[in-house]
Design a protein around this nucleic acid. Structure first.
Lengths: 173, 173
DNA sequence: CGATTACTTCAGTCAAAACAGAAATGAGTG
DNA sequence: CACTCATTTCTGTTTTGACTGAAGTAATCG
């Protein structure tokens, strides 16, 4: 693996995007690098390629592993750790969405359920407000359920579904 | 509008979530407050309810307006500005997704197209890497196209589609 | 077992972003 | 056309969290 202008552009952009998706720059850059790399990379290679501190790579990889986005491999007669990410874009997507559900949707769902209950008991709360809470709860519950069902669907099916686009709506009356 | 424990919980949680979605706490809190409020609110009311500086409300509302999430209204014989957000959750969702597409998907698409082109011209880049770039490009292009088609679909249809869940897959062979 | 190599943890530094308060602008009103 | 009220802009402070470098731990090898 070597840095070319195009790869550098990709990695830098991905890092920037990462900061908008709740993770930090280095974490996203490492993921991008591993995605583009033909083979697994060692931590010290990543240090070289990205010009970041060794410690930074260590903690970033730990984070990626905790997401299930990166796994460790080894080479015979080499005690250093090698890392690789998922290479199928749908797999990547699925894992990321799953993480976001766990970290954002689930807590929000819990909060909304509690709020819907609490707010109903509050005499001094406007009925309109109560309905708004309930509507939001229904929406988030809906997306949550939908995700649960959809996340087992194989990549090939999802690709076809996506190609269908708006055509899908003709199946609902 | 008055703060009750349940409403406070909602607003605080929404603020926390906002920080994970690329905006700051106050912006998200204001949006939550406006969503729950039976009627439009004035800036000074928001200052009171959230205990934040007046200037903070001003800039946060400006941001929300730029997203298309909040609009200004007025009362007869009152020159102060009143604000309200969208009340339909699907509308909210649509606007937010649209913003994210503009701010994240489009730039990424541009980068990937450029990269796919550049990387093809680089002799010293592994063919595997070239394919990875192309796969990612196809995926992002796919989601972008899909979004373009789907974002006109009315809320009621989307609700039905969501209820269908995995049942939708039986329509693709 | 010391020395070397690989990796992790920790404490301090730095930069970016959020926010408050003050000053400035603008828009009605008497 | 001063004066007041509403809002915005600007500047300085505070907070947050990403990152580095150093110290620490663990494993392997001569």
């Amino acid at each position: 693996m070597q840095m070319t202008p195009a790869i550098e552009k990709y990695v830098l952009h991905w890092g920037e995007m990462g900061t908008r998706w709740g993770t930090n720059r280095t974490v996203a850059q490492i993921q991008a690098l591993l995605y583009l790399s033909p083979g697994p990379l060692r931590a010290d290679e990543i240090v070289e390629l990205l010009s970041v501190a060794r410690s930074n790579v260590s903690t970033s990889i730990r984070e990626l592993q905790s997401y299930g986005l990166v796994k460790m491999t080894h080479m015979l007669g080499d005690r250093r750790d090698y890392f690789e990410t998922l290479y199928d874009v749908w797999d990547l997507f699925r894992v990321i969405i799953h993480q976001r559900k766990e970290r954002e949707l689930n807590p929000t769902l819990a909060m909304l359920r509690q709020c819907a209950e609490d707010v109903d008991a509050e005499k001094d709360t406007d009925p309109v407000t109560k309905e708004r809470v309930r509507n939001m709860l229904n929406f988030v519950e809906g997306t949550s359920d939908w995700y649960e069902k959809i996340h087992e669907v194989p990549s090939s099916t999802l690709t076809k579904l996506m190609k269908l686009g708006v055509g899908i709506t003709k199946f609902v009356k």
